[in-house]
């Protein structure tokens, strides 16, 4: 397996429910993502774009088909092995930030490294570094409730980067924040991409989608490559 192809899907299917309630969210998706790619996934709501992102992010398991992350067949992995893939290889950014409300910004970022067993001093130092990178060095000890939406999302990005994953996934990362803050978020993600990380962003905002190097459209669970204009 070619390691430059960080994500490969083969006839990836996901169905929910059974019998007459059966919903095919993804139908035989075949996708190859190269290292350093910057991809946007667009499509109407309910088209299966989030389902695809959750599968790639190892939050969910496929019904059939294969999914390789950096050459590892994750479709056969057990729950705890999936947790380790999520921890080491993937950084997930959610539309609703999903920070732990009781922890401060720096603690939220350090928590992810804690699961990876990084020692405390190093964790704190790196969390500080990452928050500085996203421009939040003045907000280290603030709780999520004391931060704006854009700031919370930047903490979430810092957290996603904590364990140095090669793949960064964003599920409508700008969906809950105003345009100018959204621009900052996208710029940060693009910077990360320039440093060599693979970035995949789900969005329904065409202007954000067009910033990517590749654009993928999903409709009724079927994936179609879209040409990025200009």
């Amino acid at each position: 397996m070619d390691i430059t192809k960080v994500i490969v899907t083969k006839d990836l299917c996901k169905t929910y429910g059974s019998g007459p309630l059966r919903v095919e969210a993804l139908k035989k998706v075949n996708l190859v993502v190269d290292k350093g790619d910057y991809i946007s996934i667009i499509g109407p709501s309910g088209s299966g774009k989030s389902t695809l992102l959750n599968l790639i992010g190892c939050l969910d398991t496929p019904t059939s088909g294969k999914l390789y992350i950096e050459g590892i067949d994750v479709s056969t992995l057990k729950e705890n092995q999936l947790a380790k893939i999520r921890r080491d290889k993937i950084g997930f950014i959610f539309q609703k930030y999903n920070l732990i409300p009781t922890l401060t910004a720096i603690e939220n970022v350090a928590l992810a490294m804690g699961f990876a067993g990084v020692e405390r001093k190093k964790r704190i130092a790196r969390a500080e570094e990452l928050l500085e990178l996203v421009g939040l060095s003045h907000r280290l000890h603030h709780k999520p409730s004391e931060l704006s939406g854009g700031e919370q999302q930047r903490v979430a990005i810092a957290r996603a980067l904590a364990n140095n994953p090669s793949i960064i996934l964003g599920d409508e990362p700008t969906g809950n924040i105003d345009t100018s803050s959204g621009n900052i978020i996208m710029e940060i993600l693009e910077d990360i991409n320039k440093k060599g990380n693979t970035v995949i962003v789900v969005t329904h905002d065409p202007t954000i989608a067009k910033r990517a190097k590749r654009m993928i459209r999903i409709q009724d669970g079927v994936v179609r490559e879209q040409h990025v204009e200009g």
Partner: peptide, 16 residues
Amino acid sequence: TREIGIMKAIGATNKD
């Protein structure tokens, strides 16, 4: 529940 989901999403194992 949500917090647990977040922790698992960022790599917490069942044991964690």
